[in-house]
Each structure stands twice: as structure tokens, then as C-alpha cells.
Design a binder for these strands. Structure first.
Lengths: 223, 223
DNA sequence: CATTATAAATGAGCCGCAATCATTTTTATG
DNA sequence: CATAAAAATGATTGCGGCTCATTTATAATG
């Protein structure tokens, strides 16, 4: 009966994780009491430590699970055969909606990054999550729907950075999901389409000229 | 001698704040020991609590001070008479550089937002800080350099969201300041210019260049 | 300068809570 | 059943934030 035994253990682990998710969400990391988590999972306090080394590892597990689920949801939210732009739109909408819905856990995520001492690492599951974006964008580049002259990581930071800040703004103002945020972002992304590059084979383009002008202006205004 | 007395108190408060900034930065919020902070400020542990109600308020004071200084620095970094684009460029550069330099304290900021219980408020000093951006952008709109058809808060979220994420990326990869991040962001902002829609999907056209040139001409003829 | 009143500083001790571990209970095995 | 191994328990420990009775420094007054 080694099988039901294993199931019991997994069920217990799941109960602890669920309890922890609830308590962390309700009370925040510092407000959460290990005793309360144990009580809700219907185990003794010591038992929690058989499954997770300490409070921080439990927190990591909660956050890790959240982003894993989010990845699944994102993939599900994207229409298989749609255009790259359409898929980006879907991903952006799904992401913004999720950030708003689960704002508490998203906030807690930053806490999981900080491992007491120093080097704020990035969580593996978030790395996994952003690949969904990367894959869409890469396909866009391969199909020449998007140009390859900006590093993907920079575009990605625009995408997630904007959505994260917008979500915070919306939540703090107690507004909900706002489609105009998505439209705005998608309009920005038009920038990445390879439009009028044909006539700029020389490598000279308007933005290069503007940058040069900008440099000149700087010098002029600080003599 | 009520005057030197006051000065002594302020000096002590400053010593505590400085010690706290250092210790929080080195050890993180959880790693920081109130005893250690007191020791470095050369006061007894109880004395700290005469100036700050508890550890969290001390943290808030540290973060508050940091953003206040940042606001001063940002204002100083912006050329008074420059174009709106140029000022945005300067602000973006200053911001990115600061985020990278003081990454530790920036990370800690999110911690100050979470007041134990719930409603992750926004800190007054950050509100103040983003006004620097708002003022520049508003001027851009007034001067018709930028169009008013996108809400400023959305543009602001693009600006700070992108820079914050980019800073994290750069720090985690142990790269330093990367000017291409700024150029990229500024290119995106071309989207917000009113002249852009017509003939060039990139948002740049001859008229934008002519406008910049004429601004320069103006400056040259009035030294 | 002496005296008193008030403000500021101190640090030993209290208390909450994460984490441990000796003990008990449950499960697998022959 | 007997017995060994695994799992669970909760009283106990230790750390660290915070308090408060006491001490020390400063101001006020005659």
C-alpha cells in the first residue's frame, strides 16, 4: 500500500501549501503565523517543517506554484493559430487581469526573491513564465512581423514593466481591468514592426538623426 | 541653549537613520538587527525607539529619505532650458543609473509599502518623485511636442515600469548602465508625438527633424 | 552655585514566534 | 503479532523586537 501512503503525503503537502497561500495572502508574510498555517492545514506545527525547511522556503513554494499556474493559464489564453499581434494582445490582457486579481501574491513575490542575505535572484518559475512572451515575440521576428533590431529582453522589460506598473496603479485606485492600457501598449509595439527600413539601407534612419540632434542640443544647453 | 540641544537631537536622529540605511542595505530588512543599528549609531537600543516607533517606521524613514534625495538629484540632473525630449532623456538616464547604483534600497522600498496588514499604499515621497516626470510631460503636451490623447499616468507607467524592469535585468546580469535602454525608451516615446501618425509608422519624419533643427537654431541665435 | 523639574538615554528583561527535537503514533514488512 | 522504520507531535528553546523602571543629562529658577 505504498501508493496510498504516497498520496497521503502529497495531500498533506498540498493542504499545507493551500493553507500557506491563504494565510500569506490574508495577513502578508510578516503577519502570517506558522501556527495558523499548521492549524488550517490540520497538522501540528512541527509537521510543517517536515515538508518545508522554514518559513521562507514555504513562501517560495507558494510563489513558485502561483507562477507555474499562471504559466499554464497564459498558454491556455493564447489562440493557437492567431497572428503574433493578436497573441500579444491576449497575453497582455491575461497578464494584466491576473496581476489585478492576485495582486496580493504578486506583491509577495518580491519577498520571495530576497533570500535574506544578498543577491536578489530571479525565481525559476518566473523565468519560465516570461518564455511565453519570448516565444511569441521570437515567432514574430521569424515571420518578419517584427524587426530584430531591438534585443528581446528590452522589449520584454517594456511589456512586463508597463503591465506591472499599470496593474499597481489600477489596484491602488481601486479601478479594475482597463482595456485602454492594453491598447496603449499594443500601439507602442507597432514601433517594433519593420516598416520603412527599405529606404534606409545606409543605416541612417530618422531615429539616428534625432539622437545626434539630441546630443547636440545637450551640449548647447550646458556650456 | 535650546538651540544646540535641538541640534544634538537632530544629529542623533541622523546618525540612527544613516546606520539604519547601511544595515538595511547590507543585510536586508529581515537580516538587519536593531541592536546592530543602535551600535553603529552609537546609542543604546532603547534610544532608537525614542526616535522611531518600531523597525517598520525606521524602514519607512530610510526609504522616504532615499526618494526625497532622488527627487532632488533628478531635478538637478535636468537641464533647465532643454527640450522636452532632452529632459526626458536626462531623467531616464538619471533614473536608470540611480536604480542600478542603489538597487538594494530600491528593492527594500517594496517592503516599506507593505504595512503588515493590507492595502499596499503608495509612499508620499514616491508620489512626489514621479511629479518630476509629470511636469516634464505636461510641458511637452502644453507645447504640443507631445499629444494629449494618452493619459499621462499610462505613459508614466511605461516610463518607470520599463526602467525598473530594465534595471533589474541589468543588475541581475551584472551589467552596468546600458545607454541602449534609454535610446530604446526614447524611441518608443516618439509614438507620443502628434506629428508622427501621418506618413511614417516609426513615428519619425522630416517634420520632427525640422522642429528639432529650428529649436537649435533658436538657441544659437540667442546666447 | 545649589536646587529642583523635566527631558533624554539606558539596557536588563519581557514576550511572541520561528524552529527544534525527544517522544509518541502510525505504517510497512515478515 | 512483532518489530523496525517513517511520520507526526507539541513542549521547549533561542533569538530578536520592543518595553519600562532606573539613571543621567539638561534646563529653569532664586
Amino acid at each position: 500500500m505504498a501508493d496510498t501512503q504516497r498520496q497521503r503525503l502529497e495531500a498533506r503537502e498540498e493542504a499545507i501549501l493551500a493553507a500557506a497561500t491563504a494565510v500569506f495572502g490574508e495577513s502578508g508574510v510578516d503577519g502570517a503565523r506558522m501556527a495558523e498555517i499548521a492549524r488550517r492545514a490540520d497538522v501540528a506545527e512541527g509537521t510543517v517543517y517536515l515538508y518545508y525547511k522554514n518559513k521562507h522556503e514555504l513562501l517560495e513554494a507558494v510563489v513558485d506554484r502561483f507562477w507555474r499556474e499562471l504559466t499554464k493559464g497564459a498558454i491556455a489564453a493564447i489562440s493557437e493559430g492567431a497572428t503574433v499581434s493578436q497573441q500579444l494582445h491576449e497575453l497582455a490582457s491575461y497578464h494584466l487581469q491576473s496581476l489585478i486579481d492576485d495582486f496580493k501574491i504578486v506583491e509577495i513575490t518580491s519577498r520571495a526573491r530576497m533570500r535574506h542575505g544578498e543577491p536578489g535572484r530571479q525565481l525559476p518559475q518566473i523565468r519560465e513564465y516570461v518564455r511565453v512572451f519570448d516565444a511569441i515575440m521570437q515567432r514574430g521576428i521569424d515571420l518578419r512581423e517584427f524587426s530584430a533590431d531591438t534585443a528581446i529582453w528590452q522589449i520584454r522589460d517594456v511589456f512586463y514593466g508597463t503591465l506591472e506598473h499599470s496593474a499597481r496603479t489600477l489596484v491602488l485606485r481601486k479601478q479594475g481591468f482597463d482595456p485602454s492600457v492594453i491598447d496603449h501598449l499594443m500601439r507602442l509595439f507597432e514601433q517594433y514592426r519593420p516598416s520603412s527600413q527599405a529606404d534606409n539601407a545606409s543605416g541612417l534612419d530618422a531615429s539616428a538623426i534625432m539622437q545626434a540632434l539630441s546630443r547636440i542640443e545637450t551640449k548647447l544647453s550646458q556650456p
